[in-house]
Amino acid sequence: MGKIIDRLLDKERILVAGHRGVGAFYPENTLLSIQKALEMNVDMIEFDMNLTKDKVVVIMHDRTVDRTTNGKGYIHDMTLKQIKELDAGGKFGKAFEGLKVPTLREFCELVQPYENILLNAEIKEKTYETVDLAMEVLKEYGLMHRCVFTCFDAFIAAYMYDSYGVRVQGFPKEKMENFVDGETGTYSKLFAVGIDMKIITPERVKEFENLGILPWSYCPDTDELVYESIRCGARLMTCNNPLPALKILKEKGWHSQMLKGNR
């Protein structure tokens, strides 16, 4: 493994990922939200990928544009030009009006200079084509060695592992689609598993550790939930609001990021 990704295996540190950038304070998955997460010195940026009608990978969580923009419809039914005409900030707050949905290329250009930042790239348009096109762009920008890839669909997770040999984050069996049991099943292909704070327990964490899978949590966004995540043994916290986790881990000397920045 490369030196950067090895930080995920450091048992002396707990890492913090910004969920969709800093989704608590800025319009999720926009370049502004990503930039603010970088400025907070998180260890990892989690972001979501969908595919337009004209086969461009864009950064957006939902398969439709309805919730986060002033438009309506499925991303896969819209061209990039149509997506770029939407306002991706105004629904979050008037101060953010005019923000656009970024492409994966635009995202890569932003994060590329931050050489110590890890990436958690989640596939939301659950097709092999989305995976292939996303991998192509991330390879072009030289970012593959920083990436963990995520999907709730076990078939897509297996495809990424089998076809590209990448590190894959999945989820507990009951949270995944198309889960395959057995020694060569879904769990055998996972590098990490994301455990919802609603269901995390020390026993559940231990279960995945015994399988050789890194136990991560989402979304511990308050002091109370951060302490609970630590108590249960999660090794990485994906947070909409990273500030409580960063503060508590810094106080305990458990956070891995350099204090002078992550470039």
Rank of each mutant, 00 (worst) to 15 (best):
M60C: 13
A37N: 04
I45Q: 02
L38S: 06
N41Y: 14
D48T: 09
V56F: 00
D54V: 05
L32W: 12
T30R: 15
T68Y: 14
D54Y: 05
N50Y: 05
V65E: 02
V57W: 01
Q35R: 15
E46I: 04
A37Q: 03
H61E: 00
M60L: 12
M44E: 04
D62T: 05
K55N: 11
T68N: 02
N29R: 12
N41M: 08
D62K: 15
I59C: 07
E39C: 08
T69K: 01
L31M: 11
D62N: 14
N29T: 11
T68G: 03
E46P: 10
L32T: 12
I34F: 15
L38K: 06
F47M: 06
L31P: 15
I34C: 13
M40L: 15
H61L: 03
L38N: 05
L31V: 08
T30K: 14
F47K: 01
N41R: 14
I34T: 10
A37I: 00
M60R: 10
N50C: 12
M40P: 08
I59M: 12
M60Y: 04
I45G: 03
M40D: 13
M49L: 15
K53H: 04
Q35M: 13
V65S: 06
K55F: 03
D66Q: 09
S33M: 12
I45R: 02
H61Q: 01
I59H: 02
N29D: 12
E39K: 14
S33K: 15
K53C: 07
T30D: 14
L32Q: 10
T68W: 07
M44Q: 03
A37R: 09
L38W: 02
